[in-house]
Simulated assay, not measured.
Amino acid sequence: MSALFHFQSLLLVILLLICTCTYIRGQFPSIIDRNKTGVLGLFWKAARVGERLSPYVSLCCIVMAVRYMLYA
């Protein structure tokens, strides 16, 4: 089953995208910051969400990790 059709997997993919974009922007800000518009602007927006909502994103990461450990 594809991650796009399973809601829990879709949430995990979005959460991993946010975390990855935030990490890349922290290490190499010029890569993310030069693409603020267009299709690649999605990565810039995901990095901004990760920066501004980092306590909530980290809490969601912990919840998803525990959920996968219990149901795996």
Rank of each mutant, 00 (worst) to 15 (best):
A3K: 04
A3H: 07
L4D: 05
L4I: 04
L4E: 03
F5I: 03
H6R: 06
H6K: 10
H6A: 10
H6D: 13
F7P: 01
Q8G: 07
Q8S: 10
S9T: 03
L11V: 08
L11M: 09
L11H: 04
L11T: 03
L11W: 06
L12N: 08
V13W: 02
V13K: 02
I14R: 05
L17V: 02
L17G: 01
L17F: 14
I18T: 09
I18S: 07
C19Y: 08
C19F: 09
C19P: 00
T20G: 11
T20I: 05
T20A: 14
C21V: 01
C21H: 08
T22P: 00
T22W: 04
T22Q: 10
Y23S: 14
Y23V: 12
I24A: 04
R25D: 08
R25G: 07
R25M: 10
G26R: 03
P29W: 07
P29H: 03
S30P: 00
S30F: 07
I31V: 12
I31A: 03
D33Y: 05
N35L: 02
N35Y: 15
K36V: 03
K36I: 06
T37Y: 14
T37G: 09
G38S: 02
V39N: 08
V39Q: 05
G41C: 01
L42Q: 05
L42K: 02
F43A: 15
F43E: 03
W44M: 00
K45R: 15
K45M: 12
A46W: 05
A47D: 01
A47V: 06
R48S: 15
V49I: 15
V49K: 01
G50P: 14
R52G: 02
L53M: 12
L53K: 15
L53G: 06
Y56A: 11
V57E: 06
L59I: 13
L59Q: 12
L59M: 12
L59S: 13
C60Q: 14
C61M: 12
I62L: 13
V63W: 14
M64T: 10
A65D: 05
V66G: 02
Y68K: 09
M69H: 08
L70C: 06
L70H: 07
L70K: 15
Y71L: 13
Y71G: 01
